[in-house]
Simulated scan of single mutants.
Amino acid sequence: MRFNKIHHIAIICSDYQKSKQFYVEILGLEIVKESFRKERLSYKLDLALNGEYIIELFSFPDPPQRPSRPEALGLRHLAFEVDDIEESILALKNKEVVTETVRIDELTNKKFTFFSDPDGLPIEIYEK
Rank of each mutant, 00 (worst) to 15 (best):
L90E: 12
L75K: 01
S59M: 06
R66L: 11
Q65C: 01
I54V: 15
P61D: 09
P70S: 02
R66E: 08
I55G: 10
F80D: 04
L57C: 12
P63V: 07
E87P: 00
P63D: 06
P61G: 11
K93W: 01
R76S: 14
I55S: 09
H77K: 03
E56M: 05
P64N: 01
L78R: 00
S59D: 09
E71T: 15
A72Q: 03
K93V: 00
F80Y: 11
K93S: 13
A91P: 01
K93A: 11
L78Q: 00
S88L: 00
A79G: 14
S88Q: 13
E81Q: 12
F58G: 07
I54C: 15
P61N: 07
I54N: 10
I89N: 03
L78A: 01
L78N: 00
P61K: 08
L75Q: 04
E81Y: 14
S59W: 10
I85D: 03
S88P: 02
I85N: 06
P63S: 09
E87G: 00
E86Y: 14
P67R: 09
P70F: 11
E56I: 03
R66V: 12
E81K: 13
P70H: 07
A72K: 01
P70N: 10
I89G: 01
P70T: 12
L73K: 05
F58S: 08
L73H: 04
R66T: 12
